[in-house]
Design a protein around this nucleic acid. Structure first.
Lengths: 187, 187
DNA sequence: GTCTATAGTGAGATAGAC
DNA sequence: GTCTATCTCACTATAGAC
């Protein structure tokens, strides 16, 4: 792997573990096995490197989600697959985490990939829910946009509860809870 | 207000805005209008002061929630009141935010108030849901513990979506979505 | 109780040799 | 492209005067 690649990957890991404020150029360099000069040759500074890392992480999250969204089964089955996909719960969401970083939210360039990713996931879920309603698999009274936001929020909030508890249990409860509510729409 | 009180209040604000890693003793002192000596006289250091601040914030969050939990109306009406309570959405949850701070999660003393607060809220919501089922207001098939976690997760995840979007809209959608699903349980 | 002085460490970046 | 040296500033805390 090239030095530039190693720098981006190290930044991705550190942003996930410690966030933007908690990640120093020095720590990135050490993890990547690169010197200061190397980093500043390839990137203009910490924000530039973070942008590359965030964009890649956001892209990866969308690709993983699309695997379930475009998978087999009814709308509800694909949403269930998305909700039940194995996740590193206690590490949290590498994208959602960034919303708690004031320096990321304050910088439009850094926030953009985060914003776009959640907007895309919500929109894809709303499409699936609309499809489920049209095919009569789900109650027509269901609001696709609102419910899509609920589904994503359950995951993001599930991470919060799990990290607070030091256990993935509340995450799994939250997922089972919303699945239970959704199944009632399929009667 | 005493110097000690001003230090705690300043720390609460900064922890909310910038998190534990992003909050420096210097910034706390400046906001409180106190010198270094003052801070280290009243508190042993940043972790000690943060503990006092976090405990108070957690206590306040429980008190506010209990206002809706013990209010008038059916179980579903009280849960709706909790979900629809006015919140400073774009600022996020001052307690949930701490779960993204590696130094808070790693320190059992700092994590404890966060853990206890969410455990308490989930437990209170589960009680309300159980009550709703027993009184026949809600479908008996509903799982109170799981659904309680879902409700809290929707709020915490709603904050995440709102901060990502730079708008409270997805938060409000997520809340409306889960309320819609819950109302179907009351048919 | 509160202040200023001081100190050791790390953040974030630049300069210039190789 | 990569390295080391260097710079400035902030972080976190201690010491000791008032």
């Amino acid at each position: 792997m090239s030095t530039s690649e190693r720098l981006i990957e190290s930044t991705r890991e550190l942003l996930w573990e410690r966030g933007y404020v908690g990640t120093s150029p020095k720590a990135i360099q050490q993890r990547a096995g690169a010197g200061q000069g190397s980093m500043y040759h390839h990137f203009s500074g910490k924000p530039d490197l973070a942008l590359a890392a965030i964009r890649r992480t956001a892209e990866e999250m969308r690709a993983k989600a699309e695997e379930q969204f475009s998978g087999p089964g009814t709308a509800l089955e694909r949403i269930s697959a998305y909700l039940l996909r194995e996740r590193d719960v206690l590490r949290g969401c590498p994208v959602g985490r960034l919303t708690q970083d004031p320096d990321v939210v304050a910088d439009p360039a850094l926030r953009a990939p985060v914003d776009e990713t959640f907007a895309w996931v919500r929109s894809r879920l709303a499409e699936l829910l609309t499809e489920g309603c049209e095919r009569g698999e789900l109650d027509a009274a269901l609001d696709p946009e609102a419910t899509a936001s609920t589904v994503v929020a359950v995951l993001q909030g599930g991470y919060v509860l799990a990290r607070a508890a030091g256990s993935s249990e509340p995450y799994e409860q939250a997922v089972q809870g919303v699945l239970g509510l959704l199944r009632q729409q399929a009667r």
